[in-house]
Amino acid sequence: MSTSAALDDRVVLRFLATPADTAAGGRSVAAGSVMEWIDKAGYACAVGWSGAYCVTAYVGNVRHRRPIPPSSLIEVQARIIHTGRTSMHVVVTVSSADVSTRRYTPATTCVLIFVAKDADGRPAPVPPWIPVTRSDRKLADAAIERMDSRAQIKRLMLDEAYSEESAAPRTTLRFLVPPGVVNFGGKAHGGTVMRWIDEAAYACAVGWAGADPLADHAIGVYSGGIHFLAPVRIGELVEVDARIILTSPHSMHISTRVSTADPRRPDDLTLTTQCLSVFVVPDDGGVAMAVPQWQPTLPEDVRLHEHAREIVRLRETIVPLAASLTLEP
């Protein structure tokens, strides 16, 4: 809770999900839309606290606990749970409600890290946040506890090399960054980049599970290790490369990397963002169906397969934040 009347450490957004937010299968809101909402609320919270332009540095452990039906009422709550010298950790919880009942139920919770910037684009100091309530203290402790695991996951993901020496199921999207996604810093919103990641990962998942009549109902149930390494500028060429690196009996683990280049030098790509997503194909009752199993054979694919297993192991050490705690005063 804020210790100063001039500062507010919480933000609540409420709105109606639009048809444009619906996933390609038509049965639920796209995970990419949810991640855009998360980024918008988190950004508003970070800017409100710091009083400065901010950039998204990290989004972790986005657990989509349940699908959100199309045209639902949406509530997105964001709150500061830790500050560093120039950074802010923000927990965001997305809830939805049927229009007729208006009873909100949590669907997604995650933690984001924002960095404040000064007028010259350099990291800027932020006011320190001091936990006051019981939930403040518990969430602050959780933010600190996650730092080591997050650093390990980032290091593991950055250490892996990706090349064309792969036979993994793969989808690659290429396009120019349009002016319509510009943020206040003249670059693409972090939420927009996460939507691109979800779209490429969805296409990859559907392509792999395509023999099943319900394949186009694939949904993202987890996104993690989303590190924003460099800005995405308007007018740049973007390549969003998604490839399956691990399958379990009922899920597909997809590594997605976003790179950019000057359109005049399209092969001179710079990695800007990376993410590991998990997709499932639910049946009509919402239960994850069996998916085709992929067995890597080439050296790079075998290495990335083991890399994914290590990421899963680390992820399992991170205790999910209870939505009830994040929504507590």
Score class of each variant (00 low, 15 high):
Ser87Met: 01
Ile254Ala: 02
Gly32His: 09
Val240Gln: 04
Pro299Gly: 07
Arg243Gln: 05
His307Gln: 12
Pro296Asp: 09
Leu314Tyr: 03
Trp294Thr: 10
Val291Thr: 00
Arg233Pro: 02
Val221Ala: 01
Leu112Ala: 15
Ser71Gly: 15
Val92Ala: 01
Thr272Ile: 07
Leu327Phe: 11
Gln77Tyr: 12
Ala52Phe: 05
Ser96Ile: 09
Arg243Ser: 07
Ile80His: 06
Arg10Asp: 12
Arg103Leu: 06
Gly185Thr: 04
Ala119Ile: 10
Met252Lys: 04
Arg122Ile: 07
Pro296Ala: 08
Val280Met: 00
Val240Gly: 05
Ser96Ala: 15
Ile254Lys: 02
Ala230His: 14
Met1Pro: 08
Pro213Val: 10
Tyr202Leu: 15
Val126Phe: 02
Thr56His: 00
Pro266Leu: 09
Val55Asp: 00
Asp216Arg: 13
Cys204Trp: 10
Gly286Gln: 06
Asp212Phe: 09
Asn183Glu: 06
Arg313His: 07
Ser149Lys: 13
Ala200Gly: 03
Val94Trp: 00
Leu214Ala: 15
Cys204Gln: 11
Tyr43Leu: 15
His305Tyr: 10
Leu16Met: 12
Val55His: 00
Asp212Ile: 13
Gly60Arg: 00
Ala323Ile: 06
Val29His: 14
Pro131Leu: 09
Gly225Arg: 02
Phe175Thr: 01
Val94His: 02
Met35Gly: 02
Asp159Thr: 05
Phe184His: 12
Leu158Asp: 13
Ala261His: 01
Phe15His: 07
Ala124Asp: 09
Arg170Leu: 01
Glu145Ile: 15
Glu239Asp: 03
Val34Phe: 07
Thr133Gln: 06
Asp198Ile: 15
Arg315Val: 14
Ile80Lys: 03
Thr105Gln: 14
Ala97Arg: 14
Thr273Lys: 04
Arg309Met: 14
Met157Val: 03
Val92Met: 05
Pro70Met: 09
Thr133Asp: 04
Arg257Ala: 13
Trp208Val: 14
Ile144Ser: 12
Cys45Ile: 12
Ala6Ser: 03
Thr101Tyr: 02
Ala24Ile: 15
Glu199Met: 12
Arg264Trp: 02
Ala323Pro: 04
Ile153Phe: 00
Pro131Asp: 02
Phe279Glu: 03
Ala30Trp: 11
Pro131Trp: 03
Ile68Pro: 01
Lys154Asp: 11
Thr105Pro: 07
Trp37Lys: 08
Val181Asp: 07
Trp49Leu: 02
Val34Cys: 09
Trp196Cys: 07
Leu16Gln: 11
Gly51Leu: 09
Pro296Trp: 13
Ala46Gln: 08
Ala288Val: 09
Glu310Thr: 14
Val182Phe: 10
Ala6Asn: 01
Thr192Gly: 05
Arg155Ile: 14
Val181Ala: 05
Leu327Tyr: 05
Ile113Leu: 11
Pro299Ile: 14
Val62Leu: 02
His217Ser: 13
Ser255Asp: 11
Thr108Ala: 00
Ile244Asn: 00
Arg257Phe: 10
Thr256His: 01
Pro123Glu: 09
Asp98Ala: 11
Val181Met: 03
Gly51Met: 06
Val115His: 03
Val182Thr: 14
Pro231Tyr: 00
Val302Ile: 13
Thr256Asp: 00
Ala230Arg: 10
Pro249Gly: 04
Ile144Tyr: 08
Thr273Gly: 05
Ala52Val: 10
